[in-house]
Design a protein around this nucleic acid. Sequence first.
DNA 1: ATGTAGAGCTAGAGCGCGCTAGTACGCTCG
DNA 2: CGAGCGTACTAGCGCGCTCTAGCTCTACAT
Lengths: 342, 342
Amino acid sequence: MTDVAARAGVSRALVSIVFRDRPGASAGTRARVLAAAEAIGYRPDSAAQRLARGRSRAVGVMTTVGEPFEAELIETIYAEAGVLGYDVLLTARTAARGELVAVEELLAHRCEALVLLGPEMSDELLAELATRTTVAVVGRGVAGVDSAHTADADGVRRAVEHVAAAGHRAIMHVDGGGGPNARARRAGYLRGMADADLCAEARVLPGAYDEAAGIAAARLLLAGDELPTAVLAGNDRCALGLLDTLRRAGVEVPGQVSVVGYNDDRVSRLAHVDLTTVRQDAAALARGAVRAVAARLDDPRSEPVELMLPPHLVVRGTTGPARSQTGPTGAAVPEDRVSSKA
Amino acid sequence: MTDVAARAGVSRALVSIVFRDRPGASAGTRARVLAAAEAIGYRPDSAAQRLARGRSRAVGVMTTVGEPFEAELIETIYAEAGVLGYDVLLTARTAARGELVAVEELLAHRCEALVLLGPEMSDELLAELATRTTVAVVGRGVAGVDSAHTADADGVRRAVEHVAAAGHRAIMHVDGGGGPNARARRAGYLRGMADADLCAEARVLPGAYDEAAGIAAARLLLAGDELPTAVLAGNDRCALGLLDTLRRAGVEVPGQVSVVGYNDDRVSRLAHVDLTTVRQDAAALARGAVRAVAARLDDPRSEPVELMLPPHLVVRGTTGPARSQTGPTGAAVPEDRVSSKA
DNA sequence: ATGTAGAGCTAGAGCGCGCTAGTACGCTCG
DNA sequence: CGAGCGTACTAGCGCGCTCTAGCTCTACAT
């Protein structure tokens, strides 16, 4: 900066003014400064700016790398943050890098707000974090914390309705384990089963939000006496693993078993997958989360907002009429490996 | 920091020593300082640290959000950077946020090195960037710049060999357009065709590295007089779009047309996709790139390293014997919409 | 007693910038 | 002609930290 100032024949303060695009410099000086900067390849140091300014104007985003649904969110987050005048600091949690590590990094960078995509940490931890900084959670609702999520219970309930209407009774749910909103989706499933008068048929298989969980679930089903006629997976990735394993084993989908996912990932739309699923409005969720933190930074005392968007059932080729039952559905899976919840 | 020092009854310098885990503080003092920090929720400000230290110890990583192959890379980059004592600063380019914007952001953060995953900018720009800072490119080779990539030409050449050995002659390539390494893959295709004595059959359809390009290519093929018997796509995403569209149109794969991808994305391994593809060793590429920049930071004058790993053809269910030819293969696609390259 | 070494600790400069308070220099207007 | 005002510019402090130089104190050899 000093070099640029010397080269342009002005003070450092003026260089600062020019680069921040503030009034206080004549057009000629502006041009000279910019030319000098260009010549020596000068760029303002964002760390020094942050320090001097006293604020970072940055929102930190935690994502899970390789999560297709989150990719859509991030795209909108960049756009919306840009509009509101914030920078985005991206950090990923991976198998080897926990959520706390990722969050601590964002905190060390003094992000003014955090947007957490599909966090798995407890509500308590999130609420505690929200007392220390501004937080918005995408993907699930958390008491006392700004959040943007889909009415997941509703989504799964509608999926149950959909297959029940097609004559299915042995409808099973492979859940998302401790994943974000897995509890809500489970509740929606049970509610849907109750509404369809199928309480006695409700079976929840513990799962997770990845392909491996779907594969494991399918193996369990295949090892049982009889397959359920419909399986609702915790999300599309799980459904994909499930579909894969069933089809490899020669099970016809939807001929013998119907499968429903959740999220409407890009691949689910492709014809050879063609997965019936529940769509979430990613852009609206991302926008809502960014706006929520921006609003809270403007007025820290406002009540937490919970943006809850309606899900949208997308019926495709993996669901169809139930096959005729040939035995007691309750025996579809060994009892000891299934947890039934009310 | 001043508060922590006051609370622990020591100077700020000592707090710094404790937090940097340097010798110069007794065990008792260490404990007191950490307790005081804990009590008031203190964390060192990474921007101030950066500034005072004069170096960032950070490598900036540019990725394309939603690219499954890059997710695998990022996972290893975090791990390897951690081992070598570097922080990782992640930034994404999106449809609305160009590569230059992303790179400028990393530069403003004074990253000591950049790792660019699948950059699409020109070799010239990359080389120029490498004169300004330390750069490693993953996914393609660039003269004068550290890089880690797969011998892509080899990979596609082997794919040609594979389908040619199955009796295919009308083998087409839907390329990656201006994408990273698209040129090399194209060259590998042409080389493979030449080796199989099929120069006259070589057809390259301009494409891109996404599903949409595959869909567009398939539509073009379906509109032609006759389908080729095999299509090699620029990558798996393109292959997926292609597969999707062909199957929706009732074309049997591999019965009528064989399809080969590139990358071995997670979804390609699933049974309902079951794509024959070319695998890259993501972990080795990521490790190589991080180590390359670390080495260059230690010794800036060393020669650029080009890490080139062998590809691995993974034969799955989308390739099979060629169907019997029923017409002139050259007429498979309207001539004016195909570019044939030598 | 004196010297020496090392451990434990502190003062204070400075990293690159933003920002406040100020100066210098026109210009308009009474 | 001077007061008043707006524009163009500068001096220099301080953001939260790191790091060098130096200070104090104890332990132990001389």
